[in-house]
Amino acid sequence: MKNPYRTQNIAFFFLFLATLLIIIPVGLIVVVIIQKGLPAINWQFLSDIPRQGMRAGGILPAIIGTLYLVTGAIIFALPIGLLSAIYLSEYAKDNMLTRIIKLAIVNLAGVPSVVYGLFGLALFVVFLKFGASILSGSLTLGIMILPVIITASSEALESVPYSFREVSLSLGASKWQTTRHIVLPNALPGILTGTILGLGRAAGETAPILFTVAAFYLPQLPKSIFDQAMALPYHLYVISTQVPNVDEKVRYGTALVLLTLVLFMNLVAIIIRYKFRKNKKW
């Protein structure tokens, strides 16, 4: 006679194994990068400009460049993304135009990042004559993370219970007052989480900044938004493939800084979400 518990246990084992396999690549990436990169991390590495053809010195210009780009992207993408999310989830009627807009957002999310790079080159660098600059790069990254911000914000807004809106309107608040005072504050944690995840993505992408901002080597920090800048992901690409004889620990050190930056942003998002879930009472 067949033992049903035995087949069940075997099935559970394989399901568990498949799930466990997910941890392995994540764990290995983190372990390898920390192991090989940690020896490179010191104050000089974080605070000095690259020296000896990027084989020594630090990576400060790349760190600063990435921070500038991420900040610029958020200044551009958060207001537009949030406002369109509010429009889509609170005001838009379900008609042809709305469906086209939603379809456009989904498609925008699916565009390969290198295509954003070319688009940014054509529109911002050439047509609008911003040149290869922090401005062009930020705008390109901003467009790339727009769908992330819009989708996350819409979901956050829609998760606010309908009854809150109903009560607020029944108390004589206008639609905008309801959105502003009731819906938005309750959706804020979700919006922030989505925004930070978008930022993490912007910080790590190479292709969109390739033609729009990234400098191969700059010995000084950018002075205005019309300057070119170095950026961590592109710098990592350069020292890994374009410059011969770069010490392995410099490459892994750069990767470690980039990884830490992105993981840190994700961690902040996770903490916000966790705190909110704990306080969520409806």
Partner: peptide
């Protein structure tokens, strides 16, 4: 004016629904 009307004619709902 719906704002004026709803201030004058208020509503209590089926489920108690205070704001958070």
């Amino acid at each position: 004016d719906l704002v004026v009307l709803r201030k004058k004619v208020g509503m209590v709902f089926q489920r108690p629904n205070p704001f958070p």
